[in-house]
Amino acid sequence: MKEIFVRLDRCLGCRSCEMACAVEHSQAKSILTAASEVPVPRRRLYVEYAEGQKIPLVCRHCEDAPCVAVCRTGAMRQDPITGIVDQDQNRCVGCYMCAMVCPYGVIGQQKESRMVVKCDRCGSREVPACVEACPVNTLIFAEEADFAEILRRDAASRLARGYSMRA
């Protein structure tokens, strides 16, 4: 199963991922008209700044997701095989319990009506919109083993650089 991973040291804070996410979830799928749609399409991931660090926070589609457990109407549901948590907008009553229990704060509100919006892993796409949009490969869509491999290569090249500078 592929996941969206984040290479924590690369984010520029350009927010292309946020933009792409919102556009992907618009009616016309066009950046030109998205902002004037009603309801305004909303991002489902968040680039946060803290202590000089920029990090895109994406829904983790947690195993045994708290947002699913707390949902009274069955709007928030988790696919038992893929583990992806998505949302049936027809059932959502806007009680915001899911938002309050999310440990990452990545469930947002649609302001025009009482509804929450949340990452759905861009079901209809091969690669999620945010990942495709990232200009510096901060967001990686890969299996865990492949992502770990990327991180090991990064660490090894840093070590190697350091070692060669000694010599």
Partner: peptide, 14 residues
């Protein structure tokens, strides 16, 4: 509160 949760997550990661 959601913003605070995100900030906390980023601080932990940072």
């Amino acid at each position: 509160f959601a913003k605070a949760a995100r900030t906390r997550a980023v601080l932990r990661a940072s």
